[in-house]
Design a protein around this nucleic acid. Structure first.
Lengths: 203, 203
DNA sequence: ACAGAATGTCTAGCGCTGCTAGAATTCCTG
DNA sequence: CAGGAATTCTAGCAGCGCTAGACATTCTGT
């Protein structure tokens, strides 16, 4: 009797994931405005009301996509930090230089993530959301991503949380303004160089 | 014969402005999602199609509001720069300190503007737009606002345009993330202090 | 002064949206 | 295998941006 219920629960979870993935793919392919409940229902081959048996509404679906993005971004950020912290051993670079390259790696990863999944990024940081951020209910994945920034700051940085917020804000500003056609997208590289010159100076 | 036409043109221009102002007020009062063509038409006491005799569509109205915001922001930014550049004469502060306070004044003005007109700010920098930015067709007012940032940078700053873009991005990031509930809004002051410590250091 | 043309405005409606009530169906249980 | 519970669907509501075509108003030329 419980095996049957287990199977239904599993199928239900699979369908839940199917909805999230389909919404994400559709958003990435044609933008969030193309993600209507009708089109989404058709793509997952169920009727509209089924969506509402899984999610409270369209926004909840979009938030589920965002949540997926938070864990992926956090994974990529901490992976970048790890790789930069354990470089090729032979050239014994100074700790300061190591920290600098770690910070650069994280920033690059962030910008690349945004560039490669623009719709996902939009769901995470641009579209209206009910997710609470700087609060106990903040998704752990998001906290983890933020911590990657804090840890990558040069040693001795004062008020590292605030600095990390600012750095994150600057990166987000660059991404958001670029995505909206409000900044030339070609100069992204130069922009990162200059940004890092301020936040992790050479000397 | 031309006087009559003049009057009609004038009335038309007034109604044009009435639509823009009403849209802006409504957005500021209830958010852009409340600005529907029906509600807007009712507020200006005309039928919906009248809106379309003035604007190509809803987005064009929102862009007209944004354009108004660009000139207001540019005015406020350059006024802030002017006031900071002409301080009380008696204490002959160093040029460096003067530049520092000018930059702070501009940044504060920017953050205040965003805080006081959140919907307007959203139309200018967050909502999708057809306005081209870094291009010949960029609204002059927006250019002027950007130049206020460039001119307020400490003397000798390398690649001032890029630095200004980054500074603008950082401020925009702070505004956008705060508006979306993604940053605690209380710490805005500290954030600005730290930001300025990086972009206009004491020594 | 008045018919006709031109201009301006409105009513009504299309196809779409997010969302839901209630019918219909399927599935499990006794 | 019948009865009941769970699930899924059909159909529809109110509101959206936008527009065609009817109606009213205003100007023009005789």
């Amino acid at each position: 009797m419980s095996a049957l219920k287990d199977r239904r629960d599993r199928e239900r979870a699979e369908r839940h994931q199917l909805i999230v993935t389909t919404a994400r793919d559709l958003a990435e392919a044609e933008g969030w405005s193309a993600v209507t409940t009708r089109r989404l229902a058709e793509k997952v081959e169920y009727s509209q009301p089924v969506l509402y048996s899984h999610f409270a509404g369209k926004e909840a679906i979009q938030q589920a996509v965002a949540l997926e993005g938070f864990t992926e971004l956090a994974d990529q950020l901490s992976a970048a930090a790890r790789d930069a912290a354990a470089p090729k051993r032979r050239d014994a670079t100074s700790p300061a230089a190591a920290s600098r390259s770690a910070l650069r790696a994280i920033c690059e990863t962030y910008l690349d993530f945004a560039a490669q999944h623009p719709a996902l990024y939009q769901a995470m940081f641009i579209l209206p959301t009910q997710l609470t951020f700087a609060s106990p209910a903040t998704p752990p994945a998001l906290r983890a991503g933020f911590d990657a920034f804090v840890n990558a700051l040069p040693g001795g940085t004062e008020q590292p949380e605030v600095v990390a917020e600012i750095l994150w804000s600057a990166l987000h500003g660059i991404v958001a303004l670029s995505a909206g056609g409000r900044l030339r997208v070609e100069d992204q590289r130069v922009r990162l160089d200059v940004l890092l010159a301020y936040f992790a100076p050479e000397k």
